[in-house]
Design a protein around this nucleic acid. Structure first.
Length: 564
RNA sequence: CGGGGCGUAGCGCAGCCUGGCAGCGCACCUGCCUUGGGAGCAGGGGGUCGGCGGUUCAAAUCCGCCCGCCCCGACCA
């Protein structure tokens, strides 16, 4: 491709709208442009990177015997009603009516559609296992899209679905996909880690997320260096053994705490450590208010709470509900005299004596509170978020926390969808059974963004070779015909050898060409300039290391061909 | 959804408080010149100042409503 004719609008200045590096660089390198919040256009250069990732995904999915399909983006409500997700999926599901007033939605995921297809077409255990996948546009009406293509509303995803005759089969299939994912992300040049994960809105039994390690990641991972345990903090178990000193229960006392609400404020006001405080969190779970107690220096893990309660919706109580239940404005709720049906507490509260809570009264807290005496003993569970240094649930050594970008997620679904949708086959004995399913996603666009997040410097992107839009760029540093001819010759021969090559034949000064080449991150730069006029040598510069080598033009061609 | 911020040329911004010719840098076009890290000179084109309404002799500027975008939060108790 000749750069003079290529649609590559690079930006010298940083776009004001971008926050994270990958977003800034994708805009500056002319890969993407925003159309609306969370909705992006891929320009030719960005699309090339996307296609490279797609190619790797296809190769590795095909390798494990998966077959590609293309499912509709627009889906009828009826299917979603069968699995009750029409009600349960929430506002992320973008719904609308067609001209005949029939309900439809834009597919955020495709379990219903694929299960419908397979129940209609597959009858026998002999056709199993079956793995189908697609690479397609998805739409999720995210609360807050951000970071460019990293968390967009419309995005490209590879989703695969497996159908097995039994659990054992599913386990084998899951394992195969797991290995395929390892190969995919390795080939994309990413530093990543598979971690245990929550199943969220998709549902199912077991799940792993593939996390690209990056500070800007939206997820936090708990990792044990000692035994290799790795989990999303959303479900990382807390096995801390709390030891509290024996102390006599002191008399309950109400203290005035005017306008003092937060844990930090209360602790400072009363001159005690936050670990002496017990927060009372009020939640509305499927319409019913529950209260959760947790030590002041810890944070509640909503995913754990939601899974424990087994509810579909879980939200913090709004100010009105808090007032109604506790009789006090937000900030002063406490367990003493609280009118809720269920009172839960994190293990960190068990054994704690003489602690501080809100008094269910404006501007007041209780001190020397003790459960069993001042209020009924709550149900104790593991409900808090792990913190750095908590013991590994497997081996007990301290955990470390790190950030990650979720680029892949695999689930063992079991029969959740097949049972709900009566998708069955006949087994060897002629008995009707529901398919045992798995589902497996990869954020394709997000993988590109994550690769950039992990591979860049001050000058721009440094594409890993396998996903680079082009492998080489020829820079012609001057208008002399000898330079142009040599450049064109190299460009043609590289292209003929199947090396994706861009030729910067623009009438621009050298500085501009160097800056653009570094910005767009093509792995190899072939520099044809003054040096060639003097010595007959061109330079081969590696973008990642900055290493330069002087070579004759034909040597460049053979070098690039050999390491293809 | 709550809080904050922003919307002026393709991009980055000033002007708004204190109403009075719509500006700067980059990009773009023409010419000269230059060619190893985003050159220089000269000339030029490009704007419903996010939209609607109001106040005023006069509105980018003041007031109201609406729209869009970004950031933070939605674990504050």
């Amino acid at each position: 491709m000749r750069l003079s004719q290529y649609f590559l609008p690079t930006l010298r200045q940083e776009p004001a709208e971008a926050e994270v590096v990958s977003h800034k660089l994708m805009l500056r390198a002319g890969m993407i442009r925003k159309l609306a919040s969370g909705i992006y256009t891929y320009l030719p250069f960005g699309l090339r990177a996307l296609r490279k990732v797609e190619r790797i995904v296809r190769e590795e999915m095909n390798r494990i015997g998966a077959q590609e399909v293309l499912l509709p983006l627009v889906q009828p409500a009826e299917l979603w009603q069968e699995t009750e997700r029409w009600e349960k999926y929430g506002k992320e599901l973008l719904r609308f009516k067609d001209r005949k007033e029939h309900d439809f939605c834009l597919g955020p995921t495709h379990e219903e559609v694929i299960t419908d297809l397979v129940r209609k077409e597959v009858r026998s255990y002999r056709d199993l296992p079956l793995i189908l996948y697609q690479i397609a546009t998805k739409f999720r009406d995210e609360i807050r899209p951000r970071f460019g293509i990293m968390r967009a509303r419309e995005f490209i995803m590879k989703d695969a679905y497996s159908f097995d005759a039994d659990e054992k089969g599913l386990n084998r299939t899951y394992e195969r996909v797991y290995e395929a994912y390892n190969r995919i992300f390795s080939r994309c040049g990413l530093r990543f880690r598979a971690v245990l994960a929550d199943t969220g809105a998709i549902g199912g039994n077991e799940s792993h997320e593939f996390m690209v390690l990056a500070e800007t990641g939206e997820d936090t991972l708990a990792i044990c260096e000692a035994c290799g345990y790795a989990a999303n903090v959303e479900l990382a178990e807390v096995k801390t053994a709390y030891r509290y000193e024996e102390e006599p229960e002191r008399p309950l006392e109400k203290v005035s705490t005017p306008a003092v609400r937060t844990v930090e404020e209360v602790a400072e006001f009363l001159g005690v450590s936050p670990a002496r405080l017990v927060k009372t969190l009020l939640y509305v779970a499927d319409g019913e208010v529950v209260a959760v107690l947790i030590r002041g220096d810890y944070e509640l893990n909503e995913v754990k709470l939601k899974n424990l309660l087994g509810v579909d919706s879980l939200e913090m109580a709004d100010a009105e509900t808090v007032e109604r239940v506790s009789g006090a404005p937000v900030g002063f709720a406490g367990p003493v005299g609280l009118k809720v049906r269920r009172l839960l507490a994190d293990f960190s509260v068990r054994g704690l004596k003489n602690f501080v809570t809100g008094a269910n009264e404006a501007d007041a807290h209780y001190v020397n509170v003790n459960y069993g005496r001042d209020f009924p003993e709550p149900e104790f569970y593991d409900l808090r978020e792990v913190v750095e240094g908590d013991p590994c649930p497997r081996c007990g050594r301290p955990l470390t926390l790190t950030r990650g970008i979720e680029v892949g997620h695999i689930f063992k679904l079991g029969t959740k969808y097949s049972a709900a949708m009566r998708a069955t086959f006949l087994d060897r004995e002629g008995k009707e059974r529901p398919f045992v399913m798995g589902c497996y996603g990869i954020g394709v666009g997000r993988t590109v963004a994550a690769a950039i997040e992990q591979n860049h410097d001050q000058n721009g992107i440094i594409f890993p070779e396998e996903i680079a839009p082009f492998k080489a760029i020829v820079l012609t540093l001057g208008p002399e015909s000898q330079l142009m001819e040599t450049s064109e010759n190299i460009y043609r021969r590289l292209s003929a050898e199947g090396v994706d090559t861009l030729w910067d034949d623009r009438d621009e000064r050298p500085g501009v060409k160097f800056k653009d080449a570094d910005l767009i991150g093509i792995p190899y730069q072939v520099i044809v300039g003054k040096k060639f006029l003097e010595t007959g040598k061109v330079e081969l510069k590696e973008r990642a290391t900055g290493q330069r080598e002087e070579l004759a033009p034909e040597e460049v061609v053979s070098r690039m061909r050999d390491q293809k």
